[in-house]
Design a protein around this nucleic acid. Structure first.
Lengths: 157, 157
DNA sequence: CCGGCTATGTAATATCATCACATGAGCTAC
DNA sequence: GTAGCTCATGTGATGATATTACATAGCCGG
């Protein structure tokens, strides 16, 4: 394990700094959604998040959470996990990843504990890029997700 | 372009052969779902398929199409595209791909025409595998999808 | 005939996501 | 200061995707 509270505090400080520097508004709802995802450190569905916002009086309708998630994803604080229709906080320290290709995340999703490992981006063409090049296909966005068993759950089994 | 009718006929013949050889029942509904996907040659949502089944009197409730898709996916005739919540017929000639790791499809999805290119599997570890190994993570299933513009749509733009 | 297996029919419901329109808070030009 | 602008939020309704639960029907081996 790691120092979870410190990890969250660090991530929130990074987010604050980014938003300050770029003139983005990290409003209460957006801030809280990011905190919730950092606290869980695993993939949460939009309605799981919404339930928690409701309990705290921060809004009760789906658009609240989807708008917050859109903002957070647009600016790279959160990623969507397509396989789960769920969302995780970004664990990468990459600061300015909007638009550029440097941040190419890949995810390892444990099917038992639902924890998500975000792998560091490696530069250079992977198989998708190679295949795309030979087909004349221009990649704009790539999804790489693997489901399986994390080390801890493998040990437990 | 290619000879579409022949392509469909070949794929259906392959499916018939596989089912005959392995004792699988390619029932009318399952067969028709596969044909529809082959005809379109692009990703269709479950309800798009259901609408067509309804028009042909092959069933009108969601479970009909989801059950057919489950069967077809289980036996490698169809793939799910997570990014689109949609389904495509498998274009790979790989016959026995249930369970083994040889068939590791990756998809290039055109955002304008919605056509899906299924790339051939390359052997050897990609970035996901490398990351998984170093994390002690056991991959059971991997999703690789890229969205962008296909060659034809790029030329048109 | 019976029991087990597979597939289908059908209604209801669960889950995920968006639309449309109204309101409010902060900012700037004038 | 206030009109007009932009951005964010509040709220109800709806759309899109997927599953559950239970009943029915065909087939086949014993």
């Amino acid at each position: 394990m790691h120092d979870h509270a410190a990890c969250i505090a660090r991530a929130m400080a990074r987010a604050d700094a980014r938003c300050g520097a770029e003139g983005l508004q990290l409003t209460p709802a957006r801030r809280r959604v990011l905190e919730i995802l950092l606290e869980e450190h695993r993939a949460l569905g939009a309605y799981d998040i919404l339930d928690r916002l409701r309990a705290e009086g921060l809004g009760s309708q789906p658009p609240i959470v989807y708008r917050a998630l859109d903002f957070l994803m647009k600016h790279g604080f959160v990623h969507r996990i397509e396989t789960l229709n769920a969302f995780v906080a970004c664990t990468e320290p990459t600061p300015g990843d909007r638009g550029d290709i440097a941040h190419m995340p890949a995810f390892l999703i444990c099917r038992t504990c639902r924890h998500v490992i975000e792998t560091v981006a490696e530069r250079g063409p992977g198989k998708l890029e190679t295949a795309a090049d030979s087909a004349g296909f221009a990649i704009e966005h790539a999804v790489r997700e693997a489901e399986g068993l994390c080390a801890a759950c493998r040990a437990a089994a």
